[in-house]
Write a protein that binds this DNA or RNA. Structure first.
Lengths: 252, 252
DNA sequence: TCAAAAGTGTTAAATGTACACCCATGG
DNA sequence: CCATGGGTGTACATTTAACACTTTTGA
């Protein structure tokens, strides 16, 4: 069933989705030493927003988030974590929904819940940048990666949501180094150099580390497997490539 | 407007609350070296549950949580933190609401949202045990402190919710020592001994610390003010009393 | 004066931080 | 053979962990 059809079902059945509830996903990617966020521009509304959606009556909220990610990225098996629910009374701009529905040619009664304040459950996802080609979906006219340092003004309180997602991500980097193979692997290609890994940490945490200390720390976790050297063509020593040990299990 | 009246308004107006959404509060207290949770038993339903409530259309979710805490504890100005939202498809037991509404003499149509799966936003609160006398409210026949180690079987997925709240609390203790004066103060009386503080940490984190190392660590944070000695009557050296420096500002 | 419990000091291990040096690579 | 940048070793500082000793209190 396509999304447009689902939307139209609002009129005949109010029972498809949980009213006034939505899920918003902050999809993080890492590319050229920049932390990126995937944003979408909804058809007929000239403002960028987080990819989001509603929760069906017969699905859990985690499943709803996975659905949205599947739609936007084509990927399943994504690193996904709920981080906070947003429900201030003044978080919505009701014009958004009016413009949007108007544009796709759907009429809804003024008192429908779609025009009310939404409670939105925030999830963040970590994905491999190079595996995703942002392509407009059925409901969106555009889909693009944005540098987290250069975000436009977003719909609703989505700027706040991203900020909170980033805070949570930073906290995880600091406190869950020992499970790095589960989340760092999601942001990096299968093989990478030690410098790549360091850049990832430095970019997200907005700090710098001493090369050798970082190197030793990572090796001491015993999560990495050293592979052959990577010859870049540059006139300097070739770095080793690494891979997370847990990846080997994934491949079998 | 009393709660019972509010409930009756469901019938005439479906617009008072956000449908299918609730807020559940895990209220932590500390007493006799035990971490306690305040639970309520709803009139006519023979099962303990977390104190919770609905979100009014014209209030934010944080405000809703504060309302619930005010109702249950009489306290305002409580340390409160949102930790997770629960929304599995099978989290509810529909019989609960039927029994409950039946008992308080309210009839609702079978297809009303009150009988559906709820999405529940979890908050945890830290309160001073001795300031609260659990008293049954209008909607509850009982209200009691339970040792976190000896919880009964609870309604819905409330056992899971408490477990997750405790996990989050532990994580905070580990990672936010420097803001201890904001949360530890909520669980302790205004003045306390160093051993009291140590017991609090050890109970929640389920570990033990060396007395002197703990002492030095706490002093080094410069959040504590040493007061006069506390003579307990025991035949040993009297411990000093301490108070969080930030408390002084509170008193002015 | 003794046991109990609190306060304080000292040392060793572990960890974190900074710097120095060595090695491979292509021009 | 030189500049560049990655790999590795070592010394120092800081933090953490463990233990020993001293002080105060009421019996």
């Amino acid at each position: 069933m396509d999304l447009n059809q689902k939307f139209k079902d609002f009129v005949s059945s109010q029972d498809l989705y949980v009213p006034q509830l939505s899920v918003d996903c902050v999809i993080f990617g890492f590319h050229q030493n920049q932390l990126k966020v995937l944003l979408v521009k909804t058809a007929g509304v000239d403002i960028w927003a987080l990819p989001g959606g509603f929760v069906e009556q017969n699905e859990g909220i985690d499943e709803a988030a996975l659905h949205i990610l599947k739609e936007r990225t084509g990927l399943t098996d994504i690193y996904l974590e709920q981080f906070r629910t947003f429900g201030h009374v003044d978080r919505g701009n009701p014009e958004f929904m009016k413009d949007y529905l108007n544009n796709i040619g759907i009429e809804m009664p003024d008192n429908h819940w779609i025009f009310r304040r939404f409670i939105s459950i925030g999830y963040y996802a970590l994905v491999n940048f190079s595996l995703i080609t942002p392509t407009p979906g059925e409901m969106t006219e555009a889909s693009e990666w944005f540098d987290i340092k250069q975000l436009p003004q977003l719909a609703f309180d989505h700027n706040d949501i991203i900020e909170k997602a980033l805070d949570t991500l930073k906290l995880m980097l600091d406190t869950r180094l020992n499970t790095m193979d589960r989340w760092a692997a999601s942001l990096l290609p299968e093989t990478f150099t030690m410098i790549d890994l360091q850049n990832l940490f430095e970019t997200i945490l907005e700090t710098t580390f001493h090369r050798n200390n970082f190197h030793r720390k990572m090796v001491s976790l015993e999560l990495l497997e050293k592979l052959e050297k990577k010859f870049t063509g540059a006139s300097n020593r070739a770095p080793y490539l690494y891979r997370f040990k847990s990846r080997i299990a994934d491949l079998t």
